[in-house]
Simulated scan of single mutants.
Amino acid sequence: MDFPAEQLQTFKAVIDAGTLERAARQLNITASAVSQRLKALEKRSGSVLFIRSRPIRTTGSGDVLLRLAREIQMLSTEAHRALGLDPTTDQVSRRTDLSIAVNADSLASWFAPVLDGLAAQDVMNCEILRHDQSHSTELLRSGQVMGAVTTKSTPVQGCSSVYLGTMRYRAMASPGFVDRWLAGADPETELALAPMVSFDRSDDLQRALRRRIVGGRAPEPPVEHFVPDSRVYVAAVAASLGWGMIPEIQDPRDGSLVCINQAWTSEVRLYWQRWKVPSHALDLLTGLVLDAAWTAGLRPER
């Protein structure tokens, strides 16, 4: 069974826009026409494809067709470019639209050269979604992104996976904070009581280290602050808000932070997963990501 391209692209437009009305304006058709195309696509697929929330969300079946719609649009754009055709419709862009997921610490450290490479090319529009590296494969699976920096080595179905390298984190704090909370007389008890800084509520680096060192002896959770910005996070630890796990690559090395204990480290292995579909733009982007990671010295196994 074939799915009409017009229906697929309308479905994609609705998911990207978040509402039927906004998608209708972008497609220059009525909201009623959008609704009719979606009903026809659902009837053809025999599945409910989306949930009418704000923004509209895909179902599991919708994820499958969303990915198909993105693949078709990407391949169509690249076919036009390869044939030297000048796109004349809104459905075919001059550039390939690519969306990728990258974790905050990577964005704040080794990923910057990728942006230089993007600025030097004229083949893609790239949307970067900041997403936790432990869960970014969910976006690949749903078709929301075509590539992702992730901790998952096993490729999502229809994707390839390559090892980028390892980000090493060290438990660090300001010298003043160490003097007050972590002087070293009883490291385990001190760590159990010391305030800590986490990125957000899904960030388990600090808690995992605390569990490893303290075990179940802590009487109660310590004060925990949340700072959801990688650069400001480092500044918050340097300001003595608490101790935190700092990527080696983000260590300011100016004396504002000191290592609490040389053994209190964690390593996060990173992988680049991308769709397997043949795409010049996706190949180019993959090369930029790999070069940036390797140039930053993430200790790749080459």
Rank of each mutant, 00 (worst) to 15 (best):
D179S: 15
Y163C: 07
L182A: 03
R168V: 14
V178R: 12
Q157Y: 02
Q157S: 07
M167H: 00
R170S: 04
Y169A: 07
A171S: 12
P155V: 08
A171M: 15
P175S: 10
R170A: 04
Y169N: 04
S161A: 12
P155C: 10
V162L: 12
G176L: 12
Y169F: 15
T166Q: 13
A173Y: 11
S153T: 01
A183S: 15
R168A: 03
P175R: 06
V156L: 10
S160F: 11
G176R: 06
L182K: 05
K152Y: 02
M172V: 05
D179C: 12
S174E: 01
Y163F: 14
A171C: 15
R168S: 03
S153H: 05
A171K: 11
V162N: 02
A171Q: 12
T166V: 14
M172N: 05
V162W: 04
R168Q: 08
P175H: 05
C159A: 08
Q157E: 10
P155I: 01
A171W: 14
G158W: 12
G165F: 06
R180A: 14
A171G: 03
S174T: 06
K152T: 09
V156D: 03
T154M: 11
R170G: 06
C159F: 01
K152D: 00
A173F: 12
L182C: 05
V178M: 13
P155F: 10
L164D: 06
C159I: 02
F177H: 09
W181P: 03
F177P: 00
W181R: 07
A183Y: 14
C159W: 08
D179P: 10
R168H: 11
Y163Q: 09
G176I: 02
T154E: 11
A171T: 09
A173I: 07
D179E: 15
M172A: 01
V162C: 02
L164E: 10
A173E: 00
G158M: 11
A183M: 09
A183T: 13
K152W: 05
F177G: 08
G158L: 12
F177L: 03
V156N: 00
T166N: 07
G176K: 09
T154S: 13
V178I: 15
P175A: 09
V156H: 06
S161E: 07
K152R: 14
S161T: 05
D179T: 14
K152H: 04
S174W: 03
Y169K: 03
Y169S: 00
R170N: 11
M172Q: 01
G165H: 06
G176Y: 03
V156P: 08
V178Q: 10
R168P: 04
D179G: 14
M172F: 06
P175L: 05
P175C: 10
R180Y: 11
G176T: 05
A183P: 03
R170H: 14
M172C: 06
V162E: 10
F177K: 07
Y169G: 04
K152S: 05
R168L: 11
V162K: 02
G165P: 00
R170F: 13
W181K: 00
